[in-house]
């Protein structure tokens, strides 16, 4: 057990992170775009946990705990915003929110 190189885990998390970022960029549905933020956060958590084990240090794991709490709060606010926007426009397409420009 436990013989895999650290870099494998880092590469996995990097892949997930970039996938999340691209999803945020490319998906027009606000809820899905927001889900992609969660994907990014998960990639970060994976990095923290891998390093935590590498350093045999709890800090990383505690950080993950905090990130999950923050993600919960962000999810609450973010979904509330999406609901609020839906009430105004009857749509959650990100690219239709263009009242503010220039």
């Amino acid at each position: 057990m436990l013989s895999l190189p650290l870099s494998w885990y880092l590469m996995l998390s990097a892949t997930l992170f970039v996938m999340g970022a691209l999803g945020l960029l490319l998906r027009r549905n606000a809820i899905v775009a927001f889900m992609c933020v969660e994907v990014m956060l998960n990639a970060v958590n994976l990095t923290f946990i891998a390093f935590s084990k590498y350093h045999q240090d709890y800090t990383g794991q505690v950080f993950v705990f905090m990130v999950i709490a923050v993600a919960a709060a962000e999810a609450g606010i973010g979904l509330a915003m999406i609901v609020n926007m839906f009430r105004h426009k009857h749509s959650v397409q990100v690219d239709e929110a263009t009242l503010l420009r220039h």
Partner: peptide
């Protein structure tokens, strides 16, 4: 993966909070 990296508590948290609570909220809103 978390469990493989000896982060047992976080693995459980991941399932309970993330999958169990946050994602349910997403689905509710959907």
């Amino acid at each position: 993966i978390y469990a493989m990296l000896s982060a047992h508590l976080n693995a459980i948290m991941q399932i309970m909070v993330y999958a169990g609570a946050i994602m349910v909220l997403f689905v509710f809103v959907l």
